[in-house]
Amino acid sequence: MIETEQLTKKYGDLVAIQNLSFRVEEGRIWGLLGPNAAGKTTTMRILTGYLPATSGRASVAGYDVFEQAEAVKQSIGYLPETVPLYPEMTVESYLGFVAEIKKVPAARKKAAVDRAVQIAGLQSVRKRLIRNISRGYKQRTGIAQALIHNPRVVILDEPTIGLDPAQIKEIRDLIKSLKGEHTVMLSTHILAEVKEVCDGVVIINEGKLMASGSLEELARSFSQNDGVYLKLDRADGEVLNLFRQLPGLKEAALDGAEIRLEWPWGQDLRTQVLKLCLDKRLEIREMRSLAMNIEELYLRIVSGGMEQ
């Protein structure tokens, strides 16, 4: 649904992004992840047709961003980093205006505004001036604006920045509800957001692609085996030997006070491990997944400089 090939953008001598190639499948929520000044906003601006790329190709919803700019703009809803609001308009008249410039037919305009208001939860402020509504509602109005013409692709640049925790949760729930019907790409540097909302990520650093794929794929590419860390009331060779008898287990080892159990990807021995512990009366204090969490992944990818 979103695809780029060797996308490069230079501002004079400054290279903002370099040879970015990635793809996002239809109906998925994808995160664009990277430290500040990594090129996230530039990438999004190119995809939305706001900026032309220096070289390379990009397509959105099957249309070429450079050749068929108008069709692309018609199929994208875009929330820029600074929410594009006119403070002197009411929420309703603003959404009406956006519907008009997004070429929603006049007969369907009112329904489109109602729908966007409904999805973004703006019922209580729809008649108020944008100047007078809170930061959270402004952000929602920005998202409503991006959804007004029911676009196939939604691009959100840091949608939760500057909100309080309750508002962040609301916006994330809102984004999650878009899954399936819309393809969403959102940029962020908050890792918890990616874990909660996204199906996959594109990680960039200093304009270069560091990794891309679903979260599971990325976790697999970093370790050969799946498995768990297990903390029991005792950890010694005798316990290890008990676990080694489990069929399918590739490795059991002591890792400090914890026991590391590994098995190949695709299997799940957790039930067997639990059963064994119950049978042998081993008390479980803690059990956690061996797969790297997103924070570890991100740090490995961004600081380790491993390029794909």
């Binding site: 706001y50 018609q74 820029p80 600074t82 929410v83 594009p84």
Partner: peptide, 13 residues
């Protein structure tokens, strides 16, 4: 200044 030109220039207008 308000950043709204990004809305205008990414619209099919």
């Amino acid at each position: 200044k308000m950043g709204t030109e990004e809305l205008l220039f990414t619209s099919p207008v």
